[in-house]
C-alpha cells in the first residue's frame, strides 16, 4: 500500500456549472499537503470524488494506487473528515466510533485508543448531540484515525477549534506526516496552513493553479517588487513611471514598485532628487501570494455571477 493520493484529469459538471475542470495533482507520503482555494474552487468536490462519494464525469482518482470503491476495509486505507456535524445526535461518541470499527472488523479496543488520542476520553459516553463544535471536530478526527490509515484527508479540520485545539491539530498533522503518512488538509484560508503544510496545492475554478512548496510560492510572488517609503509620493510615481516601472500605492507614504530592481529605483530617485527614507525588496506574505494566484479565479467568478443575474 502506497501512502499516496493521485488525481488525474478530473472533470465534473453540476448542470451548467463546471465544478472540476481538469483537476490533477499527487499527494505524496511524509508531508502535510495543503489543499487551498477560495470557496467553490472544487476542493470538497475533489475530496468527495477521491472518496467515491461523487462520480467524476472524466478522470481518475486513486488512493494508494486503487480506486476508493474497490477497497474492502477502506477506513484502514484512508481516514477522512468531511463533515464533523454528520452524527446521530442521540448516539454517544464512543458508540459512533464503535459502529465504524465494527464495519471494518476492528476491535472495540481501537475505539478507546483513538478517543484517548484526540482527548475525548472523558466525553466518550456523552451523546453526540451534546458535544461542542470543537469536540465534534475531534470526534471526526478520531473517526479518521480509527483504521490507522496511511492516507488522511481532512476537509477544513480547524473549523470550530479553540486556539489550544488549533495548536494541537497542527502538531498532530505534522506528527502523522512524520510517521510517513500522506496528509491532505483543505482550507479556504491560507493562514491556517502557513505553519503546518509543507506542500501546497492551490486550486481555483476547478483546476490546480499552483502545485508547489510554501517557500517557492512566496519567492515567486515576491519577484521584482520593491517597497519604497517616501513623503513625495507623487513625484516618485512620476519619475519611476518614466523609467518604465509599474507603481502601486500601498499605504499613505508607501508605494510598491515593480519592473525595476532596488538599485535602479535608488538611481532613478537620486537622479530626480526625490527624497525617500526606505527602499526594500518586498517579500510577499503567503497570504498575498495566494491572493495573487487566485485573483483571476475569484474575478472570473464574480463576472460569472453578475452575468448570471
Amino acid at each position: 500500500m502506497h501512502a499516496t493520493i493521485e488525481v488525474h484529469g478530473l472533470r465534473k459538471r453540476f448542470g451548467p456549472t463546471v465544478a472540476l475542470d481538469g483537476m490533477s495533482f499527487t499527494v505524496s507520503p511524509g508531508h502535510v499537503t495543503g489543499f487551498v482555494g477560495p470557496n467553490g474552487a472544487g476542493k470538497s468536490t475533489t475530496m468527495r470524488v477521491i472518496l467515491g462519494l461523487d462520480a467524476a464525469d472524466e478522470g481518475t482518482a486513486l488512493v494508494g494506487g486503487r480506486p476508493y470503491r474497490s477497497l474492502r476495509t477502506p477506513l484502514t486505507h484512508v481516514g477522512a473528515l468531511l463533515d464533523a456535524a454528520a452524527l446521530q445526535p442521540s448516539r454517544t461518541a464512543r458508540n459512533h466510533l464503535l459502529w465504524l470499527a465494527r464495519s471494518q472488523g476492528l476491535p472495540a479496543g481501537r475505539v478507546d485508543e483513538v478517543l484517548e488520542q484526540v482527548g475525548l476520553r472523558s466525553a466518550a459516553r456523552r451523546r453526540a448531540g451534546g458535544l461542542s463544535l470543537g469536540m465534534r471536530q475531534r470526534l471526526g478526527i478520531a473517526a479518521a484515525l480509527l483504521g490507522d490509515p496511511p492516507v488522511l484527508m481532512l476537509d477544513e479540520p480547524v473549523n470550530g477549534l479553540d486556539p489550544e485545539g488549533i495548536v494541537w491539530i497542527r502538531g498532530l498533522l505534522r506528527s502523522l506526516a512524520a510517521q510517513g503518512r500522506a496528509v491532505l488538509v483543505s482550507s479556504h484560508l491560507m493562514s491556517e496552513l502557513e505553519d503546518t503544510a509543507d506542500r501546497l496545492v492551490v486550486v481555483g475554478r476547478g483546476r490546480v493553479v499552483a502545485d508547489t512548496t510554501v517557500a517557492e510560492l512566496i519567492a515567486a510572488a515576491s519577484r521584482d517588487r520593491v517597497r519604497l517609503r517616501t513623503t513625495a509620493r507623487e513625484r516618485a510615481t512620476t519619475v519611476l513611471s518614466q523609467a518604465g516601472a509599474t507603481v502601486a500605492v500601498a499605504d499613505r507614504d508607501v508605494i510598491t514598485v515593480s519592473g525595476l530592481t532596488a538599485e535602479r529605483v535608488v538611481a532613478v530617485l537620486t537622479t530626480g532628487a526625490v527624497p525617500f527614507s526606505e527602499v526594500a525588496a518586498d517579500r510577499a506574505t503567503l497570504e498575498e501570494a495566494y491572493m495573487e494566484l487566485t485573483r483571476n479565479a475569484v474575478e472570473f467568478r464574480a463576472v460569472d455571477a453578475e452575468a448570471g443575474r
Binding site: T73, W99, R102, S103, Q104, G105, G147
Partner: peptide, 25 residues
Amino acid sequence: MSAGTAPRRGDFARLLRAEWTKFRT
C-alpha cells in the same frame, strides 16, 4: 499503519454488525 491487513470477517458480516451496532445505540 494497518493497511492491507486481511479482514477477519466477511464483508457483509461486518456491515451487518455495524448496522446492528447503529440500531442498538
